[in-house]
Design a protein around this nucleic acid. Structure first.
Lengths: 353, 353
DNA sequence: CTGTTAGCGCGTTCAT
DNA sequence: ATGAACGCGCTAACAG
């Protein structure tokens, strides 16, 4: 039924071993023989059996990419960048590698499950993107899993994620804390004092680091952070919308809102507009990530730009062994403050009466 | 070095076959035996060898998803939806299946390459998303490929893509033509007569169908389409920005711009604003797809909503054989006109002098 | 319900 | 430069 390597060998009048050699191009083969084999491959429409190949060679051409939410451009951009770098020479049978994108939905269990699945497939490499969940038990389980993966020959790279000590995993970490710090400093410099903060989900490193930066900026300014002005929620528009309304209820004199990311910020903007508030005249709004649509928001969103594309591409190259790992296996990637129209000087009329 | 099924069998004092049976859960196994095996698996930290399993069973747990651009939420949403439906019972070893997301970048060659790679992996199913390239040679090659995939047991589903006759592939097609028609009808009903059209890349079915709908609406209104008012370009913001400026140059009295999709529409909006034109007072703008950010544009974008999530999920279920294919193997999915703030009655002052 | 026996299709030693 | 033989780890018949 299905044509195998042996069929090709028979048609080309050579041994199966020779066919395997021309297909993988790892051993010297006479030009005329190669010709003949390739012709037979073509005539028979032969397609290599990946599983058999992987079994015999004890490695596959699969590269795993773990993301929280593939529908979110934040992850889509990174996944695309990783994927664009994993092709090329070095792999089996022509250097084509397949990206296996796994949607964890932010669930720790699914994260572990997918890693097991990838281990099962003998993935050549695994790239984990996005923040980690901070539960100690989960962190331990992940650490053990990553170590095992590394030991069995799968290269592991963390992209936009804190390092996993003692696992051998390479980490490209985003400086979320520094970004959060600079963003709030910017607001403080404009004169804002009553700043609401819409944070991401609890127990996630990204959420905590960005929030830490925010608080560090406040306290450096001698402002005691009011816990009532910090709300947690998922990284989606709805969360931003609801939280903005709630913040306004808690402090009607708010002059600025900082959101966990751009998507949340857009939701917050919608809420403010629906309440008849102008941005930034009445309330300034800032986001994080600088996703493509943020530039087209009206007014354009002040945010912290993360080099998602660049970082993803680099993670992909490191995963393929085509670029050296950073010294110590850890590199910190900086975000860049993008000041745009959504933040401005606070209205002196607000905040007083 | 690596622990195999035989090791587990030895530890659990059973035969390898029994271990395989409890792992796959396809045959009845005594509860106590199962216990013992599972304990051994746990103690040994055993992980099934996917390639070996796939080789022996002649099928894998991989499901391919072809997308044009994973960084584009249009595809991210569909890919996520497909992925959310491919798990569950029925697969090998616990019913977990892995989504292999392949970024074609819209390139016909890469599309074919990825299909070969998926065929090589003996993928359980393949879902192709997005429009197709209209080159006859490529269509023929794709047809042959899809047929072969189907013959070798891989279920093929097209999602948001025109049917591929005689390939056995199931198609969930978006009614791009109807959506384009209704969108332009809406504009005509508002009183617009000079409408610019920023189309997608040439030679793509999506581009052609949406454009056909637009033209059909125009001619039904007795308006002869001015070819100068149609521009082609990629599905990105930049294309929308540049094209809007060019359209304005070609016809300064334009009262409306229809874009190939929402991303392009946002770029067009930016260009219009930069030229000092108000939306919709001076120029109305409409998009297509209704991606999440379109609702938060200012003004909110009038567009045609495509049920990406629903369609993707359905494609996933059909691919897994968990839902019957539509009659004839083809279903047409309608888009819904979403009238929002970006379109309005044209300014009588424009278009005249 | 469980063990035994054969391969699945390919890569890779060894020879030649 | 090429061929022969073996084994990768697992599943799928068959027995029992």
């Amino acid at each position: 039924m299905t044509v195998t390597l042996a069929d090709v060998a028979a048609r080309a009048q050579v041994s199966p071993a020779t066919v395997s050699r021309v297909l993988n191009g790892n051993y010297p083969v006479a030009a005329t023989t190669r010709e003949r084999v390739l012709r037979a491959v073509d005539e028979l429409d032969y397609v290599l059996n990946g599983p058999a190949s992987a079994l015999a060679a004890a490695t596959s051409d699969l590269v795993g990419i773990l993301v929280n939410d593939i529908a979110d451009p934040f992850f889509g951009i990174m996944a695309g960048a990783v994927q664009s770098e994993i092709g090329g020479p070095g792999g089996r049978a022509g250097g084509e590698r397949l990206a296996v994108v796994c949607n964890t939905g932010g669930s720790p269990e699914r994260e572990l499950t997918y890693l097991t699945l990838l281990q099962r497939q003998r993935a050549a490499a695994v790239v984990l993107t996005g923040g980690a969940v901070e539960d100690p038990a989960h962190a331990a389980a992940m650490g053990a899993k990553l170590r095992r993966l590394g030991e069995s020959g799968t290269r592991v790279v963390l992209c936009g994620r804190p390092p996993a000590p003692d696992t051998g995993a390479i980490a490209l970490t985003f400086d979320n804390r520094g970004g959060g710090l600079r963003l709030t400093q910017h607001l403080l410099a404009l004169g804002h004092r009553r700043i609401g903060y819409i944070a991401g989900p609890e127990e996630r490193t990204t959420t905590r680091h960005r929030l830490e930066g925010h608080r560090a900026a406040l306290s450096a300014h001698g402002i005691t952070d009011d816990p009532h002005l910090t709300l947690h929620g998922p990284y989606d528009r709805r969360s931003g919308y609801d939280a903005a309304l709630e913040l306004l209820r808690r402090d009607p004199d708010l002059t600025a809102v900082v959101a966990a990311n751009d998507t949340v910020a857009l939701g917050a903007c919608a809420a403010l507009r629906d309440r008849g508030l102008r941005i930034p005249a009445d309330v300034s709004v800032a986001g994080f990530d600088d996703l493509p649509f943020s530039m087209d928001a009206v007014p354009a969103l002040t945010t912290v730009r993360l080099p998602l594309q660049t970082a993803g591409a680099r993670a992909g190259r490191i995963a393929m062994g085509r670029e050296d790992a950073p010294p110590g296996g850890i590199a910190t990637v900086q975000g860049e403050l993008m000041v745009r129209g959504s933040t401005g000087v606070p209205d002196p009329g607000r905040g007083g009466a």
